[in-house]
């Protein structure tokens, strides 16, 4: 029995909601219970977008993720807003290209991934979020790489199917960091 409580946050357009969608579909594929609660409204319109995802073997009561076990942040405002909420013993995965801060808390484990820079360097433009997803997979082990690969085939629309190999490359890159 295990429950994964995670929060993914960044600017609108950085792909935090897509990140949440991919891991939610992985949970569905693995026959788990899943809740995915996105932010909506003013924060989406040019501000920060975030998404709470719970994947569990058990029935999920509250879909709120107030104290994530693993927090993924892609910009500084999200970092500042949420770093204090991570459950003690939990993880924070951050894009160190865009967040120029060191985590001061000693009760959580920080993973600094220069995702935006790596995406640029490896010709994976726009896939910084997926590099972070690779790291997320390596840190949490919430599913298998095979499930993630299958999930991309489901969530990427047919006319964008040619982008699937790039996405998988980005996941693998993130996993190896």
């Amino acid at each position: 029995m295990s429950t994964l409580r995670t929060l993914i946050a960044g600017f609108g357009g950085q792909g935090s909601l897509f990140f949440g969608k991919v891991i939610s579909y992985c949970g569905l594929h693995d026959d788990k219970n899943v809740t995915n609660l996105p932010s909506y409204g003013p924060e989406m319109r040019g501000g920060t977008a975030n998404c709470s995802v719970i994947i569990s073997d058990e029935e999920i009561s509250s879909p709120l993720v107030l104290n994530p076990d693993t927090l993924v942040v892609m910009n500084l405002p999200s970092y500042d807003k949420f770093v204090g909420t991570v459950a003690p013993g939990g993880n924070i995965i951050l894009d160190s290209t865009l967040i120029d801060k060191k985590v001061e808390r000693e009760d959580i484990t920080a993973y600094y991934v220069p995702a935006a820079e790596l995406a640029e360097k490896h010709n994976l433009q726009g896939l910084a979020n997926i590099i972070l997803l690779g790291k997320f997979l390596a840190v949490t082990g919430f599913t298998s790489l095979e499930t993630v690969e299958k999930t991309f085939e489901k969530v990427v629309p047919a006319k964008k199917a040619h982008l699937i190999p790039k996405n998988i490359e980005a996941v693998k890159l993130g996993m190896e960091l």
Partner: peptide, 10 residues
């Protein structure tokens, strides 16, 4: 409510 409308679940 807005939470149920926006939330994704299996």
């Amino acid at each position: 409510d807005g939470m149920l409308g926006q939330m994704m679940e299996p």
